[in-house]
Design a protein around this nucleic acid. Sequence first.
DNA 1: TTTTATTTGTCCGTATGTATA
DNA 2: GTATACATACGGACAAATAAA
Lengths: 257, 257
Amino acid sequence: MTHGDAIRPEASVPGAATRVGKATGVALWRQVADHFEQAIAAGTYSAGMRLPPEKEVAERFHVNRHTVRRALAELGSRGLVRSARGSGTYVGAQRIAYPIASRTRFSEIVGASGRQPGGRLVASATEAASDVVARSLGIKAGAAVVRLELLRHADGVPICIATTWLAVERFPDAASVYAARRSITRTLSAHGVTDYRRAKTRVVAAAADFDDSLRLDVKPGSPILLVESVDIDMQGRPVLATRARFAADRVEFVIES
Amino acid sequence: MTHGDAIRPEASVPGAATRVGKATGVALWRQVADHFEQAIAAGTYSAGMRLPPEKEVAERFHVNRHTVRRALAELGSRGLVRSARGSGTYVGAQRIAYPIASRTRFSEIVGASGRQPGGRLVASATEAASDVVARSLGIKAGAAVVRLELLRHADGVPICIATTWLAVERFPDAASVYAARRSITRTLSAHGVTDYRRAKTRVVAAAADFDDSLRLDVKPGSPILLVESVDIDMQGRPVLATRARFAADRVEFVIES
DNA sequence: TTTTATTTGTCCGTATGTATA
DNA sequence: GTATACATACGGACAAATAAA
């Protein structure tokens, strides 16, 4: 390896030059990766933008193209960029920061990210509670529950498919109320629940099946974030049991303790 | 459709028979799925066990094989079961419940699940902090940090690859201390940090790259849970910045608010 | 090693009830 | 009310992978 100098791209490369001493013990590929990570974070490269071709990057950094590829692979494995053969490497869309906290409201979260939240009621039905749902809602298995299936989106881009169950006894016409008010919060308040909070959240990852791929507009097999949650009212009684499937490349969950 | 009766498997089927009225508005495939979900939760079918063949299930439930397939697909998409052509459908291994809370310690969490925790130091190095790491640790970009790369496992099964950064100024020989004590907690206490807590956690999902597939023993492209976290000491100063990649089918994150 | 049976995966098709335009 | 689209459910046939003989 005969690159005489530190990693320092030419001025023509967008973004401030990353200046790192040459004997830092940091692998070259990591320095290149850090450079692009910082440039993306700084907005030099925005969502959907194409990065310079690998060959060009290699020349400007005075490293081998394989070193650049190693760096881009690192960023790719974290979803920051995606490479398209014969086309280029593109910056992935910015994920919506989705805080999982006591107060977790889809529309507020999406709105806070500067996007227009939306939800479409895909299906609704009254059914007998399965054991799992019944336990979450603190009711007897087989008791009547309303199931609401929502496709939620931000700026028209699908974010998640959420299935929510409510006990019929407490929320007899949840389906029709939701259809009219188009908001879970307002549906609950129409039934006298003025406030509610998240009690428990369970996060798992899985691969998108064919159904997900159609409804969330992702490729089958791509990662899905599966969230099971229970919300309770101010008296501590469960009001909502939800099972949601998020397109993994569109959200990041943030937990502050 | 001439199945005259409710979903009610014969007594020979393991597990209590699920009795559901025929006009509940619940699709047959969902009833079958609920039955197996409950049976798995109840332990009737334990991890790794093979479910009865689709044909057999169809006969016993008096439904078509396609209906059974739809039910198993639902469970499969949630990772509860996985199907192998020519062999059968198997119950997935139970995930380690990984609480993300103020006190988050790998060995304690794995130990609590009844498994033997372990960790192998894959690599360690002293390097200059990248912008992202520096911001997390509250130090100047370029300041010296120790990077520890750990492969953590439970009962010998790899769970995650964790990369942890510590400021050299505060933890000068973190690498050698960890190598000797084999515990992050003990490494910190050797440097005078008696207690620490999780301040922020960020969860994202991605697909396993080739590297992950080798080290975590998963198939390339299978889902990976990516966790970035910062731990702080009792004075609120950052002590650890960590980036971990979990095999998604081996853990479930639990957040209680 | 070869054969055979088992089991899942993928097609084809038909019919029916329900929600939507 | 009618037409259309969709999800559900069923029946059959065969391919492909696996496991057992």
